[in-house]
Write a protein that binds this DNA or RNA. Structure first.
Lengths: 242, 242
DNA sequence: CGCAGTTTTGATAAAGCTCAAGATCTGTGG
DNA sequence: CCACAGATCTTGAGCTTTATCAAAACTGCG
């Protein structure tokens, strides 16, 4: 496989190596931050691109989207953050994207300074933080694969499966976000998202009613090889830190 | 801006917020790992997808590409790692992608166990490691933007500027990788990469001769707003750890 | 020189975007 | 309870970009 060809890589057209980037092993957060809780209205801005990054946030309930807006007005949705997930951690002292509530949302606001102190003193917490960063890196990498070499069909299928898995919804999903959000997340136009929903419905893979989606066929489920896998590596009660 | 509209996000078509994700502030590695050095032939495999992850690596000289191969034989290049960069760090105990030398390459092999110990005992090193992970996350996010909403033209321009910046090459770049590598990195076909090189040449933005590229116009340079920025946040001699 | 791999160019077709319009949904006020 | 307004969602037609297939030009090296 790619045996030492003088020069550069061979364009692989051979048979399969399992793709993969395994799903994160668990859903319950191992790290629970405690602090000031705030509620946000649907559409409310939590922080804005370029604003000083004083806090990180953990979702208590609801969903948050992180976005950036391009010069030309195009919007990119970098990710959706579900309950238990931590977001807002930056490399520099400012936020590199904006965060907005998708629907009614409740968050814990945790000062970055406190987080740094925590990471230094609490080995276990530090490991969790580290791990969550790697999870998000891997999630991004996986999405990358689907967006680079997938049709609209595959992207949307993957999105639905991923969401079902992350929210433990089984086969009935209540989408919290609009078609526009999905489009900007998957790098498609909202029209194409709509058409693709229709195509999935037509082929009997899903049924929809507004933002309710039902995954019907195992064909679509197998696309992600996820459902069923769950917690594995040992016991871990959530840790609550002050 | 996105004022609290009842319901969901507004499809932004308004004027610009600077896009952006600032460039990493510095090029010289602050963290230098010391250990067994190995040389690799062009095209040599450093590690393979799914193999146990026992080491992380730091590039001494040359370039490394990390890749995954899809079921259908499609290849994805996740990234190119330049001298000073650390790669191979995983969330789980196996590698989620393969790594191969692009051209003659020299690497330091550093046991993961040692890295973990280091991160726990050496606060400064831990911070560096953390930072390098965030850098790679942000780099991925930025690439994402260009790949999702950019034409082949913009993607390649961005790639060249990024590479020029990261290698401190100024305006004359010696590409270490093939058109195939670039194609799989940018989510294009190699033919399109070739055509786009030609288009850039035709418009007088670059000149090429094989893998030598010269950035001619400031127009292309401004695309990334990078050249010129450099080290800022305080003094930091490289740290060498055993 | 001639081979193997790489790069370029050309013709064709498909996927998805854009523009445009119609349908549905939701909340509000009469 | 109904009608209206604003937003969201769906569908259609034409067009642009890029992938694909095919083949020629180039490069480095034995």
């Amino acid at each position: 496989m790619f045996a030492g060809v003088a020069g550069d890589g061979v364009r692989a057209r051979s048979e399969a190596i399992a793709p993969h980037i395994a799903p994160p092993r668990r859903l319950a957060p191992r790290l629970v931050l405690r602090g000031l809780q705030r509620s946000h209205e649907p559409g409310a801005t939590i922080y804005t691109q370029c604003e000083p990054a004083e806090f990180v946030y953990q979702v208590v309930s609801g969903v948050v989207r992180t976005i950036t807006v391009h010069r030309d007005g195009r919007r990119i949705v970098h990710g959706f953050h579900l309950p238990g997930e931590i977001f807002g951690l930056e490399r520099e002292k400012i936020h590199h994207c904006s965060a907005e509530a998708v629907g009614e949302t409740r968050l814990v606001q945790y000062p970055v300074s406190r987080l740094n102190a925590l990471a230094e003193h609490d080995k276990e917490a530090s490991r969790e933080l580290w791990s969550s960063l790697l999870v998000s890196r891997d999630r991004t990498a996986e999405r990358f694969m689907y967006i680079m070499h997938g049709t609209a069909f595959e992207r949307l299928a993957h999105f639905l499966i991923d969401l079902a898995w992350r929210t433990r919804s089984g086969r009935r999903i209540e989408l919290p976000m609009s078609r526009y959000d999905i489009a900007d997340y998957l790098g498609l136009s909202s029209e194409t998202v709509s058409r693709t929903f229709t195509a999935l419905r037509t082929r009997g893979l899903i049924s929809t009613s507004g933002r309710q989606v039902r995954l019907l066929s195992d064909e679509i489920l197998r696309l992600g090889e996820r459902l069923g896998a769950d917690d594995e590596d040992g016991p871990h009660w959530p840790r609550t830190v002050p």
